[in-house]
């Protein structure tokens, strides 16, 4: 006797649930990642401590350097701290939630991406969910501490505009770094070798984003304004925060960097298309 197993799956309205449902699934992925990490508690906390220390040592570097120099190109110690802590916050947020892309080369190499494709959900969502680098909480905490320390040290008069600017900076910067991780993942569809050079755009941007980008010279500023728009989330809004520039324009500038996600996403789509036509 054949009895068809109940199958109500298809009767659910598909459109209505998509966004909320995606968010649900995303949090489910997050929780399973947390539970996996908690299987190795001591390792988790030691690694988080390690992450904390890595950034803390960079902070110490800045501290000692500024005992020797009173400013760099007009930016004082507390201003540099503020700049670095915002970049670091953006980076660690992006790293926690978008580092699934970091392991994407492994996913392509081992063929686990096939598994993603035989499931009825958005591929990006599944790849993102496959790995959350939660130990980066150490770096995030360090960045937060430095952020508040920087605020206390500086004498910024906080206006609503400036608070909004900081929020936009964090949002735009997190999107920008996520975009770079996405770019890295997309490149994996085409080659798996020599992608280490992408470290320049990720770790390099984090390390050298500690100083306002103008100190590296005009050309570097142009590059980071128009090619990979780091300056939009770092240098220009920082000038506004420090009262070196005026204009509402600077408040909204960080949001422009969200546009960087568009070409990255297109490249990703193109990569998926190539993948399904070559199967490798």
């Amino acid at each position: 006797m054949r009895q068809n197993r109940q199958n109500q799956t298809r009767n659910l309205p598909c459109q209505k649930r998509s966004i909320r449902h995606s968010f649900c699934l995303y949090t489910h992925y997050l929780s399973i990642n947390i539970r996996s990490a908690m299987e190795y508690k001591s390792s988790f906390f030691l690694t988080a401590l390690g992450q904390f220390l890595v950034s803390f040592h960079v902070f110490l570097g800045i501290l000692f350097l500024f005992q020797r120099f009173s400013n760099v190109k007009g930016f004082t110690y507390s201003e540099v701290l503020l700049c670095y802590s915002i970049v670091l916050l953006e980076f660690s947020l992006a790293e926690m939630f978008a580092r699934g892309f970091d392991q994407f080369s492994e996913m392509v190499r081992s063929g686990s991406f096939d598994r993603v494709l035989v499931r009825p959900r958005n591929e990006l969502l599944q790849v993102l969910g496959s790995k959350f680098e939660l130990t980066r909480i150490g770096r995030l905490l360090q960045a937060l501490a430095m952020f508040f320390y920087g605020i206390l040290q500086s004498h910024i008069l906080w206006t609503p505009g400036k608070i909004i600017t900081v929020i936009f900076m964090l949002f735009g910067g997190t999107c920008l770094f996520s975009g770079i991780f996405l770019l890295y993942a997309s490149l994996c569809f085409f080659t798996l070798e020599g992608l280490e050079f992408m470290n320049i755009a990720t770790d390099g941007a984090r390390e050298y984003g500690k100083y306002p980008l103008s100190i590296y010279g005009k050309r570097m500023l142009q590059f980071t304004t128009f090619v990979i728009p780091y300056a939009l989330v770092q240098y220009y809004p920082l000038l506004y925060l420090l009262d070196k520039r005026n204009g509402v324009f600077y408040v909204f500038l960080p949001l422009l960097s969200v546009l960087f996600l568009a070409p990255c996403y297109l490249l990703w789509r193109f990569g998926v298309k190539c993948y399904t036509s070559s199967g490798s």
Binding site: Q6, Q8, T9, C24, I32, R35, E39, R119
Partner: peptide, 22 residues
């Protein structure tokens, strides 16, 4: 790898939007 099998099943339930009764 690191969580009980049933947790993987529950995740699949969400991925495929399987109704509770099914």
């Amino acid at each position: 790898w690191d969580v009980p099998v049933i947790d993987s099943f529950l995740l699949l339930k969400d991925i495929y939007s399987i109704p509770d009764s099914v």
